[in-house]
């Protein structure tokens, strides 16, 4: 398979993936009843009254801290993948220096993890 064919196949998957919900929801529209009423359209909360206030409330900061940690380590993964693929070639080329280099890189990020750990960012309480 050529490069273009591989990605054309992916496009085919996206089209078919979009077609299924479109088709199923269209068929469903023909089959299902449609009788909207006030209580039905109420948010499901207490069951008696409309919920008080907006539900889009402020969230605890820890969600954002985890998101930041996620970004840091996901970017680390972006660097680790090419390194892992090229490991054999680089090992033959520059020897174990390639391992030491990645060791230093990971070490600096682990310092960040240890810092977050010490600051109790990783606790969920």
């Amino acid at each position: 398979m050529t490069y273009t064919e591989n990605y054309l196949s992916v496009v085919g998957f996206i089209l078919v993936g979009l077609a299924l919900p479109a088709a199923a929801l269209t068929v469903g529209r023909l089959l299902r009843p449609y009788q909207p009423s006030g209580p039905k359209a109420m948010a499901y909360e207490s069951g008696v009254l409309d919920p008080t206030g907006d539900s889009r409330v402020q969230f605890h900061v820890r969600y954002y801290l985890f998101a930041l940690l996620f970004v840091i380590f996901d970017v680390e993964a972006v660097f680790l993948y090419p390194w892992a693929v090229a490991y054999d070639a680089l090992r033959a080329d520059v020897g174990l220096f390639i391992l030491a280099e990645m060791g230093i890189f990971v070490f600096f990020l682990v310092i960040g993890l240890v810092y977050a750990w010490k600051k109790r960012v990783l606790e969920w309480t």
Partner: peptide, 8 residues
């Protein structure tokens, strides 16, 4: 498929 589709 035949359930009503409610949107709050």
């Amino acid at each position: 498929l035949i359930k009503e589709d409610t949107i709050p």
